[in-house]
Design a protein around this nucleic acid. Sequence first.
DNA 1: ATCCCGAGGG
DNA 2: CCCTCTGGAT
Length: 216
Amino acid sequence: MARKKLAPARARAPEIHARLVKRYPDAHCALDHEGAFQLLSATILSAQCTDKRVNIVTPALFARYPDPLALSAAKLEDVEDVIRTTGFFRAKSKSLVGMATALVERHGGEVPREMDALTSLPGVGRKTANVVLGNAFGIDEGVVVDTHVSRVSQRLALTKHEDPVKIEKDLVKLFPREQWTMLSHLFIEHGRQVCIARTPRCGECVLVDLCPSARV
DNA sequence: ATCCCGAGGG
DNA sequence: CCCTCTGGAT
C-alpha cells in the first residue's frame, strides 16, 4: 500500500493549526489559578504530574500561602505535606519556597515578566517560564514544550528532535508568533484526548491525512 | 510497566 | 550527555 507523500512541515503547519482550532475551540490553560504567582506555583508542581492532580492540591496550597511573602516563610515540611501527591515533593517544596523567597528578595514580591528573570528563579525552567509569560501576561515569548507538545510534534514530523529547546526552535519557525501560546494548548489537548502516548486514536484524529505517523 | 503541562546536578 | 527526584493513574 503506497503511502501518499506528505508535504513538508512548513506547508502543513497552517492547516494543522486551523483544524486544531476548529476541533478544540475552547482550549485553554488547564492549571487552575488566579494570577501569575498562582500559575507559577501550579506549573512548578506540574512536572511529571497530571494537571488534574495539580488542581487537587493547589486550592489548599493557595489558601495556606496566598502570596510570595507567606510562601517564602513556609516550613519545607508543611509545604511537602500539602503537595506530596504530586510527586517529587521534596524538590518541588524547595523550588516553591525558594521561588517565593527570590520574588520577595529580588523582585519586590512580584512575578517578573522577563524570560531571564523567570528562569533564574529556583525550579523555573524554560517550559515553566513560557507558561507564565503566555498565560498570565499574554506574552507570546515562545512555545511551551511539555511531554504532549513534544510527542505530537514528533509524530506530525514538525521536528526531528527530542530536546524540548530544539523542538521549540522548530515550532516557532513553523507558526506565527501570535499563535504560539494557543498552539501549546491545542497540542496538549490533542495529545491528551487523541494523540495519546500509548495508544493514539488515529481513527478519530482530524490530522490523519497530514500525519506521517498515522495508523488507521 | 508506562506515562503525566520538568528541572537541577554531575 | 547522563542521572535523580516521586506519587498516582492506567
